[in-house]
């Protein structure tokens, strides 16, 4: 891994894998949407609204996964001072914020016809809303502090402290009485949903994962270029 700490090597690697990432993202979305909107049957209770699950659940998974990536990268930045770690954490945040926003809004659009309400302050919904605020706070730190090293250190601490929210989101439906249903895919005794619903859900989850990987690679390359520009401008001013 240390070999890829070099931004030049990282850029070369990213350029090699980016076309494959873009291709597989487009392909997975096409197949996933076909399965979600055409192949998957109506649910006997939810009717057509079950199709919201194919975009809501992957968005919620990616909201948590992206924050986990951000926290891991922040830990690496603090402990090993890996040159790309804070670049990875910083560029993951806006993508994660978008996934979290979509999880909240699509959940609300599912909740209104199924629960009869747009929103309830129950443990799962509230903890995901807190995750959204953590993303916004993390982005705000990078925007507010001019000195990159200071911003990176403070943002990394916030990301690591906020990581405590991830297990709270995951287990909130088990620890507290919640209107939100418990886990139905990642369970000790296997998924509790039929394959006709599970397959489109997993394809869409893969599509969202590949989209994250693609966007994150592009955003990391941009951030590396931006830092190079900053250094060159500093050199121009001094020389």
């Amino acid at each position: 891994m240390q070999a890829y700490a070099n931004p030049t090597r990282f850029n070369a690697l990213a350029l090699t894998i980016l076309p494959w990432c873009v291709g597989s993202t487009v392909l997975l979305f096409l197949v996933g949407l076909y399965y979600s909107l055409v192949v998957a049957p109506q649910d006997y209770q939810q009717g057509e609204t079950v199709r919201i699950m194919f975009i809501h659940v992957p968005a919620a998974w990616m909201a948590m996964a992206t924050y986990t990536v951000m926290a891991l990268a922040s830990a690496v930045a603090i402990i090993w001072r890996h040159p790309l770690a804070d670049v990875a954490a910083k560029t993951a945040a806006p993508i994660g914020a978008c996934f979290t926003f979509l999880a909240l809004v699509t959940g609300s659009l599912w909740g209104k016809p199924m629960w009869g309400t747009w929103w309830v302050w129950d443990a799962r919904l509230t903890s995901v809303f807190v995750l959204f605020l953590l993303y916004l706070g993390y982005i705000a730190i990078w925007q507010a502090i001019e000195e990159p090293a200071k911003a990176a250190r403070l943002a990394a601490i916030v990301a690591l402290v906020g990581f405590v929210n991830i297990p709270i989101i995951k287990y909130s439906v088990d620890w507290w009485n919640s209107l939100h249903q418990p886990a139905s895919v990642f369970r000790m005794d296997g998924p509790a949903i039929h394959s006709s619903i599970l397959i489109p859900l997993l394809i869409m989850a893969l599509a969202y994962t590949m989209l994250f990987l693609t966007l994150h690679l592009i955003a990391m390359r941009t951030e590396i270029m931006r830092r190079r520009i900053h250094n060159m401008e500093q050199a121009e001013v001094q020389g």
Binding site: L37, E48, R51, I95, F101, L102, V105, T106, P113
Partner: peptide
């Protein structure tokens, strides 16, 4: 998918908004 099913507007709004946000982000 049936476009005459009850609550279909919620489904279309979810997909439309998701497309808007993800394409906008990209």
């Amino acid at each position: 998918m049936s476009f005459t099913a009850p609550h279909i507007g919620f489904v279309l709004a979810s997909y439309g908004l998701s497309a808007l946000v993800l394409v906008g982000l990209t």
